[in-house]
Computed example of a mutant assay.
Amino acid sequence: MSNHVTIADVANHLGVSKSTVSHALSGKRRISTEVRRQVMEAVEELGYRPNFAARIMNTRRTGLIGVLVESLKNPYTTALLEELDRELSRHSLRMVLGTTNNPEDGRELLVKFSDGMVDGILNNLPGLDEAEARRLADGVPVVTYLRHTESPLVIDFAAGTRTALAYLTELGHSDIAIVSLGSRAEPGKPDPCLTAYREWSRCPNDPSLIFRVPEGTTEAGFELAEALFASRATAVLAGNDAVSAGMIQWAIDRNIRIPERMSIVGFDNSSLAKMTFPPLTTLDLPIGKLAAHTVRVLLAAILPDELLPEPLTIVPELIVRKSTIPFQVCPLK
């Protein structure tokens, strides 16, 4: 087809108005899922390609959403990005990704995103809170993942931690270690998982059972494993699935049997949880629900006709697999 296909050509092809096609492409107005699907199929079939500069001039929108994340090493983050991209695509929006481990670089990226590049920003940088993100964005709508105040999305990490600890206690474990991830905590606040652990523990400040990692990666879990297995712990709540996988790999390399030597519980229920050997017992975070709610909050800030969703609280559910067993008096190596 010709490169000069217009919105009018797409509208005539479908027998709908030009405004319907325009709204389906821009997401500016509510369009049914079926009509949006037909428009997107027609656009592909006819070869329609909007002029980017003209679109910005006519709609004052780019159709792009900036997404800031700290790292792609955590499989949960990559899964979240896939779900965010899927949700944004349903509204004819596309994701522009910025990654950095440096807080200053993150601030610089956010400012660049706000300079006419995107229609809105999803901030997932742990060191950048909502107030600062909004100040730097200078009027561009920003939603800070899990920390936004409008129609808040809350994951009850403490409740999930208590569920995991209760389960391990029922299995007969009393010396249970925990790995604290700084990314679980809001800036200036304690890790909610560690707070719940200390409330449960008979020795809440025992340093031999409390471990910390700078990043929730398999490498961090691997490096931490030697100290963990040298402790008196017979079970561990390992922060997330990636850290758990690193611990399991360390044990496999040394012919240490899991879960006979150490029962391990992860957090996230990421793709790794089913791929480890043994498969990982873990706390589930429903990424699809989290992504959908986050995108709807951002759309409500961008589009005048979009309604805010109701606040959402998620209590992580324990998914039991093969990485946990009852306490053994003489654990096997």
Rank of each mutant, 00 (worst) to 15 (best):
T218W: 12
N58F: 00
Q38G: 01
H91E: 15
S32E: 12
I176Q: 02
L97N: 07
G106K: 00
A11E: 01
L290M: 13
T294E: 02
G288D: 13
V16A: 02
T78R: 03
A235R: 03
R254D: 06
A235V: 04
G120V: 04
L46H: 01
T217K: 06
V39P: 02
L237H: 13
L181R: 02
I7Y: 03
L307E: 15
G63L: 09
T149Q: 14
A233N: 03
L93E: 08
F157C: 08
M275L: 13
P126G: 00
S270L: 05
L283N: 10
S2K: 09
Y167S: 05
S2D: 08
F52S: 12
F113Q: 07
M95Y: 01
S263T: 11
I7R: 12
L308Y: 14
L122V: 11
F52P: 04
V67G: 01
F222H: 15
T324R: 06
L88I: 05
G221Y: 04
T324K: 08
N123R: 01
T282A: 08
V265Q: 08
L299D: 08
I65H: 06
V111W: 09
L64T: 10
A230I: 00
G27E: 12
A54T: 10
P304F: 04
D175K: 14
S17L: 00
A196V: 10
A292R: 14
S22K: 03
S270M: 07
T195A: 14
L84V: 10
H4P: 04
E260V: 02
A301V: 00
R37K: 15
A292C: 06
L46V: 04
I65R: 05
C203I: 11
V96L: 13
P50L: 04
L109M: 15
T62K: 07
V67P: 01
G188V: 04
I7A: 01
A292H: 10
P214S: 13
K18S: 12
S180L: 08
E170V: 02
G172K: 07
E186R: 12
L25W: 11
R94Q: 09
R94W: 07
D206I: 03
E317I: 11
F277Y: 11
I325D: 06
D268Y: 09
